[in-house]
Computed example of a mutant assay.
Amino acid sequence: MAQVPSPTIRARRLRRELRRLRERTGRTSEEVAKLLGWHRTKVIRFELGHSRVMTKDIEALLDIYEVSDEEREVLTALHRQARQKGWWSAYGDVLPDDYVGFEAEATVISTFESLYVPGLLQTEEYVRAIVRAGRSTADQDEIDRRVSARLGRKVLLSRDVPPALWVVLDEAAVRRVVGGPKVMRAQLARLVEACDLPTVELQILPFAAGAHAAMGGPFTLLDYADSLLDPTVVYLDNDTSTLLLEEGQQVARYRLMFDHLRAKALDPDRSADFLTRVAAEIPD
C-alpha cells in the first residue's frame, strides 16, 4: 500500500511557510493584516492553525509576499493538499484531535507507554475491552466506531514503506489483564510477533528498573522524512486532554528521556522472552 500525503502535515507545512514568507518581508502580522484590510489577528490565526485558510486568502498573502512563480506553485499545491480529507476525517466524532494526521506521514514513531499496549500493536479484542472500560455509558454504535477508528490506524504498518516503530513498554501494561485471560494472551502473542518485524523494535521496561525518566506519563515522538520541512513533534495524551509540542527544546527533552528509557529497558530479544513468560503466568 502506497503512502498518501497527510493533509494535517501539509497544513502544518503551509502555516510554517506563510510565517517564513511574512518574516522575509520584514512585516509583522498586524502590518500584513492592515494592508489586506483584515482583522489584526487574522494572519497570526492562519499561522497558528486557528483559522482555515481560504483560496482567496492564500492568493492575497502570496501577492503581498511577492513570491516567485515557483514558490506560488508549491504553496498552492500545499494548500490544495491541506484541504483534502484523510481517512480519519470520517471518524471526527471519535478522533477529536489531529494525532492520526500527524502519525500518518511519520517515518519514525518512538513511543513510551505505561498503562496500555500502543495502539498500532493492539488486537481488536484488546481495543474493544479498552473502549468499553473507558466509555461505560456509550452505546454499541459508538463503541464500534471507536474500535474501527483505532484499528484503522494500523494501516500504517501495511504501507509499502512502513514507519520505523520503536516502543518502550512498561511492565505494568503487560501485567494488567485487559479483557480477560484469553484476550490478554492473544495480545501478548501479538507483541511477541511484532518483535520479529523488521521495522519494529519493542523493549519492556521491567519493574526492576526502578525509577525512570518518564514517570510523568506516556509520550510519542514523531519524526518525518525531511526534518527541515516537517520538524519532529511530541504528542502527550491523557483521558481529558492532548498536547502537541513542537519547540526544539521540548522535543530535545523528550528525545533524551526516550534514550534513557531505551537504556534501562530489556533488549528486544529479552523482551520477547519476557512477554512469553508473562503470558504463561496469566491464570485461567
Score class of each variant (00 low, 15 high):
88 W>Y: 14
60 A>R: 05
69 D>E: 13
46 F>H: 06
55 T>W: 09
47 E>W: 09
83 R>Q: 14
59 E>A: 08
75 L>R: 05
50 H>W: 08
84 Q>W: 06
79 H>F: 03
49 G>V: 07
70 E>H: 04
61 L>P: 00
83 R>Y: 05
77 A>V: 06
76 T>R: 07
46 F>S: 05
51 S>F: 01
83 R>K: 15
59 E>N: 09
87 W>A: 14
60 A>S: 08
78 L>G: 01
45 R>A: 12
54 M>N: 10
71 E>P: 03
92 G>V: 14
78 L>A: 04
86 G>N: 08
74 V>D: 09
48 L>N: 14
64 I>Y: 03
78 L>E: 01
51 S>M: 02
82 A>Q: 04
84 Q>D: 12
51 S>Y: 02
90 A>P: 09
78 L>Y: 08
87 W>I: 12
81 Q>E: 15
69 D>A: 12
66 E>A: 04
74 V>L: 11
84 Q>I: 06
75 L>T: 04
41 T>K: 12
94 V>L: 15
45 R>N: 15
42 K>I: 08
48 L>Q: 15
65 Y>C: 01
84 Q>M: 09
60 A>D: 02
47 E>I: 13
60 A>H: 02
51 S>V: 03
47 E>A: 11
57 D>A: 02
84 Q>F: 03
55 T>L: 11
62 L>G: 08
95 L>D: 10
59 E>Q: 09
87 W>S: 13
49 G>Y: 08
51 S>L: 06
63 D>S: 10
84 Q>E: 15
51 S>T: 06
56 K>W: 04
73 E>C: 11
70 E>Q: 05
66 E>P: 00
80 R>C: 03
92 G>Q: 15
90 A>Y: 12
74 V>I: 10
44 I>H: 13
65 Y>D: 03
79 H>Y: 04
89 S>P: 06
74 V>Q: 05
46 F>E: 00
52 R>E: 11
76 T>I: 06
41 T>D: 14
79 H>D: 02
